[in-house]
Simulated assay, not measured.
Amino acid sequence: MGLTDILYEKVEGVAKVTINRPKSLNAFRAETIKELIWAFRDAWDDNRIGAVILTGAGEKAFCVGGDQKEKGDEGGYDYNGGLGGGIGLEVENLHQTIRNIPKPVIAAVNGYAIGGGHVLHVICDLTIAADTAKFGQSGPKVGSYDAGFGSAYLARVVGEKKAREIWYLCEQYTAEESKEMGLVNKIVPASELQEEADKWARKILEKSPTAIKMLKYSFNADSANIQGISQLSMGSLAMFYNTEESEEGKNAFLEKRPVDFNKFRK
């Protein structure tokens, strides 16, 4: 397919998927998600591929989540070609594809991994971070949330207390802080990130593909129930995007002004 929002290459058994919207800090829109799903499915179907690397173009960002500028007047994202789970983005489909592809997915986090971009790296099997990377959530600040894998699975990774902190406070964390809480496997200088991700991918290629596949299935089994939670989350999010409360978060972000949610507590 013709790719506009991502870069995709396969080299000696490793597939590399790069979100290529650096001017938007690699924020995703409907087309981005569509292309990401296509790339992961292509890597899934290619028996020569043993590992996938997911990263972002440029030096500033891995991905900062959904592009607020792409949100339509009715709250959801403009999407041509399907319902997108009700919010105009096939995010749930992408999450499932990354989790279920029977090959390890390595997130090479080169900068900001915020909001929906943070969820993407959490879902990946492994995360290698540049020493300049920043991690965190932003949903409640902009009238959004991921009450599926973005929260329920995050709690499995870092523990419930820390996961609640990440979502309730929407702070940003350094690569070192993220490694301490179990979000990151390894930190390297930014200039060495892609090389290190490639090294890890090639170490995986040396292992039995069937063993790796079955191990991934086993790791996923314990949290498989989150898929149902994710479906409920995306359904509720579609309705929430049509409210004035969600609209206030989006508008405040786009207008670069302080958000005012206090009026919704009356």
Rank of each mutant, 00 (worst) to 15 (best):
G85V: 00
G58P: 12
Y112P: 02
I98Y: 06
G66W: 07
N80F: 10
N110R: 11
G85F: 00
P104D: 07
E59I: 15
I106C: 12
G66T: 10
I87C: 07
G76E: 07
L54T: 05
A61Y: 00
D78E: 11
L94N: 02
K103Y: 02
R99A: 05
P102A: 13
K60D: 15
F62I: 09
G56P: 09
Q68G: 08
A57T: 08
N100D: 14
K71G: 00
G82Y: 01
G85S: 00
G56H: 01
L83T: 05
N93H: 08
G58S: 06
E92L: 12
K71F: 04
G66Q: 07
G88C: 07
G84D: 01
G82R: 05
A57I: 12
N100V: 05
E90R: 15
G76H: 00
E74G: 13
I53W: 01
L89K: 00
I101G: 09
Q68W: 11
P102E: 15
N80Y: 08
G86M: 04
L94W: 00
K60Y: 10
V109S: 11
G56E: 10
G72F: 01
G81S: 09
E70C: 12
H95E: 14
T55L: 07
A108Q: 08
D67I: 03
G56I: 08
L83K: 05
L89P: 01
L89A: 02
V91P: 04
E90T: 12
I101E: 10
G66S: 07
R99I: 12
V64H: 04
K60L: 15
L83W: 03
N93M: 05
K60R: 14
G85T: 05
F62C: 08
D73A: 12
V64R: 03
G85R: 00
G88D: 05
I87L: 01
L54N: 11
N93T: 10
L83N: 11
P102K: 02
K69R: 15
V109L: 08
T55R: 09
R99S: 03
P104M: 06
Y112W: 10
I106R: 11
G75Y: 06
Q68E: 10
D78A: 13
R99L: 13
A57E: 15
E70Y: 01
K103F: 03
G75D: 04
D67F: 04
